[in-house]
Write a protein that binds this DNA or RNA. Sequence first.
DNA 1: CGCTTGCCTGGAGTGCACTCCAACTCTCTA
DNA 2: TAGAGAGTTGGAGTGCACTCCAGGCAAGCG
Lengths: 156, 156
Amino acid sequence: MTAVQAGNGHGPDGATALPCTQPRPRPRPADRDRYTIGEVSEHTGLSAHTLRWYERIGLMPHVDRSHGGRRHYSDRDLDRLDFVGKLRLTGMPVADMVRYAELVREGEHTFAERQDLLRAHRENVRSRIAELRTTLAVLDFKIDSYADARRASERN
Amino acid sequence: MTAVQAGNGHGPDGATALPCTQPRPRPRPADRDRYTIGEVSEHTGLSAHTLRWYERIGLMPHVDRSHGGRRHYSDRDLDRLDFVGKLRLTGMPVADMVRYAELVREGEHTFAERQDLLRAHRENVRSRIAELRTTLAVLDFKIDSYADARRASERN
DNA sequence: CGCTTGCCTGGAGTGCACTCCAACTCTCTA
DNA sequence: TAGAGAGTTGGAGTGCACTCCAGGCAAGCG
């Protein structure tokens, strides 16, 4: 649940920073380390409702607040959200993401468990890719069948 | 929503039969062209509830019944279900699958539209695969980071 | 013939992941 | 300093895809 993107990425959560390469899909507004929920919503594609909900269920640590109680997201928060977004895109259940977030909160002694969790998920993603590929073949076949059928009926 | 698998596959629904190559994941009980809902459930991995529900919402055409009102699924029905299963695995919304089923029911003049629908879905699947692959890279990176961090801490 | 097991129906219930509401409060710009 | 507009909360509501229930009927076996 940490940075894995942009120049300022971090290593495993709680560990020292490590270099990282993935480009951020939409660029951050500006590197000022303080973003409103609206800006974050814009950047991540998640609704403000969802961002607040993520915090409530413990998927995000408590975000810094202004004097008046408004959220100020940091660059680090954006990094976390990017990672959460990746997991979400791959269909990881929210409960599992929350579990991961808990492990992060518990500190460095949970490295092994976090790694296991991610490894299991990676296997999951791999088999999903394989699944999608076989379906792609089926779709190609079907689409070609329709093309053939249409060509044949035009010829008559 | 027709056969696209096993030796007895069909072409686009409503068209003449076409050869097909994909192997059926779990073999059919026996090629007797008459299966109970329980057997079909076993074979497809869908619950009997779900099979009935699919029929109710129009995702499957009405399945043949016995004198006493019990469903007898044909091999053709199994083929349809296999295709539905493929679409489902790739995350096509049930509403879209129902739309496709309607087009099939309407006859051959909907070939073009069916093809479009499948093409759009194919694009969808392709981009999902790409998405999953980039996430896989992120996961690899994270997992490696944990491995590094653990090795480092053991060394101390 | 009776019994167990499987299947039938319509409708209600579940779990997940949001999504929206009401009734405020805060911040920024003019 | 006033007003617009973005943000706050807890809790209720939504949509999707099942999933289950109650109460009854059917089929195959001994």
